[in-house]
Design a protein around this nucleic acid. Structure first.
Lengths: 168, 168
DNA sequence: CTAAACTTTCAAAAATTATTGAAAATTAAA
DNA sequence: TTTAATTTTCAATAATTTTTGAAAGTTTAG
């Protein structure tokens, strides 16, 4: 397969994966494009390759910057902005994990704990509900803690330490 | 807070969490409703509580059954079908993990590996691309393996064994 | 059988989410 | 300054996803 074809296929694949995980398809494609690019890309480069509008590029690039997985880069002699994605996939994984934890998991844990505490009733039914909230918090918090550890860990932790434990 | 209000709040919360993880909101709400219900519920019960149409209930309940997290239950003396969700949250976590792995992670690993092998070119640029695909496969496969282990593990594994390792 | 109870289907409508593109705002060069 | 280049915004539009609801299909009771 041609390298360029392979790059496009990767961009497509990544875009559709993103959709099923609640991430905007174009955002994922822009990120994928920056990942496979050796050179920093301008808004126009992205517009041309992905055939999307300037506004769309701007929106999505800023979202990626906000997620901490893309950054602006200056190119000598050029006035416009260029963008690059960090090529370290482990860093990418950590960064995405960190953001999603903060944005989506932690607020839920908070609500679950509130619900558990706010119900004062003491019927059998209420107890079952509180038990359910506790179980949900418990699993969610555990996952959250594991992710915390993953975020703080060094590059080989996921691969080695985890795998070792898992083989037992 | 009233128990019923708390249940509704939980249903809402779960629904919005679902959206950000690429799961249909109504599907998550139907599941949440079944989780907080002590009795099995009929299609009509779900329609009334969530104020959604019969067709919508049917679609989403079947999706939940297909995911393996809801099942039909027969109620003596009743002709219509009733539905229940397993109350074991650990089982729920394992089941959802298993399905998402199969539906979304494994196909991507396959594509990444194909892309890595299909590019025959040997330029510097091609090598960098192959390296990227390898890194992406590697992180994705590692996560996939960890999830495999989680699925096979017993109830306390996530909470104890994992936590212990993590505290170190 | 036949009819009533119930479930499923799916085209059309509604709701939601993403994208465009042109105007406004900003930035930097002349 | 002024002007040209570039980025940002956002209302309008398009695309996608979800939901409805009535008709078709299925099942069971009589």
């Amino acid at each position: 397969m041609e390298l360029e074809a392979a790059k496009l296929k990767y961009i497509q694949t990544w875009g559709s994966l993103a959709t099923s995980w609640g991430i905007n398809k174009t955002m994922a494609q822009v990120h994928a494009l920056l990942l496979v690019s050796i050179e920093p890309l301008s808004a126009e480069d992205i517009m041309d390759t992905l055939k999307i509008s300037r506004g769309n590029v701007n929106m999505n690039v800023r979202a990626l910057i906000d997620w901490g997985i893309v950054r602006k880069e200056f190119v000598v002699g050029e006035r416009k902005e260029f963008f690059v994605a960090d090529k370290d996939i482990w860093e990418l994984f950590k960064q995405v994990t960190k953001e999603r934890k903060k944005r989506e998991i932690e607020p839920v844990i908070k609500v679950l704990e509130e619900l558990q505490n706010d119900v004062k009733e003491e019927s059998e039914e209420a107890e079952q509900f509180k038990k359910l909230m506790q179980d949900l918090s418990s699993v969610t918090s555990t996952v959250n803690n594991i992710l915390d550890k993953a975020i703080k860990a060094d590059e080989h932790w996921l691969l080695s330490s985890f795998t070792k434990m898992i083989k037992k």
